[in-house]
Amino acid sequence: MEYLNGGVRIPDLRVDIGPLSLANPVMTASGTFGYAREFESLLNLRRLGAIIVKGISLHPRSGNPPPRIIETACGMLNAIGLQNVGVDRFIVEKIPYLGTLGVPIIVNILGDSLDEYRHITEKLSGCGTVAAIEINISCPNVKKGGVAFGADPAMAAAVTRTVREAAAVPVIVKLSPNVTDVTVIAKAVEDGGATAVSLINTLIGMAIDLKRRRPALANVCGGLSGPAIKPVALRMVYQVAQAVSIPIIGIGGIATAEDALEFMLAGATAVQIGTANFVNPRASEEVVDGIGNYVLQEKLPSVREVIGALETG
């Protein structure tokens, strides 16, 4: 804990994701914060621990037909279809602004082959602004009949290794919850050289429009996010924390500092705020404030005391 003039205490919120040091454990989740600029008039972007931008692929993708989103009980389903501007336009149009923020920028990447993942990583490694890469392994592997990379330990490890070899920065692997045992995948990517894992991505779900007798989403199925998935996400973070020794970034239904601290108790070193950004664009900054207040109230020397401090038995 540091002191300002006049004895005002500043909580120590610093955490490390491998070699990457963050001023605090709060990041924005990919796909829920655009390219950050959309939010610039609504919160102080510089106060975030890190910013993770919308998933980027090698070539631009136009995404799925509408309707792409539907609200469900305490959450929402999305089938955006990974729409993005592609890595080249991202570097030209988005990176310069992001570079001015003075906050670590983490780029979420996706692909449908190992080559594509390698290619994007090489392009991103060339620009200094990128502090880390987060791999979305929930995408289908075209060469393996469309099975998601994240559903198979060998494929998940292979993507991790491929990106790791091409990357000059830390590599975070974002785990899919749509697997039988998430710890198996977590261990595989740890062995593959992942700096950290982040979890969870959305849970596959479905909604039906009874009146029209049709799926509510044009894509039929979509990814469930928001407060509805928090218990599942907490459980998975807890399980993975028992299984790996690399840092974990918790994601899933986090909207308040209390939510974030629960994930940290379960073993997360940092957290990401997703759907909550839509409801309250200031959510991420408010979580930073709330965690700081907690550290002061509990008189903790650092927020790092909270990580994995869950008492069981």
């Binding site: 796909g31 655009g34 959309e38 939010f39 509408p66 792409r68 989103i69 999305n78 950004n277």
Partner: peptide, 12 residues
């Protein structure tokens, strides 16, 4: 349909 209203979710 909209989730964010500000260009962040790409849902609309």
């Amino acid at each position: 349909v909209m989730a964010c209203g500000m260009g962040a979710c790409l849902g609309c």
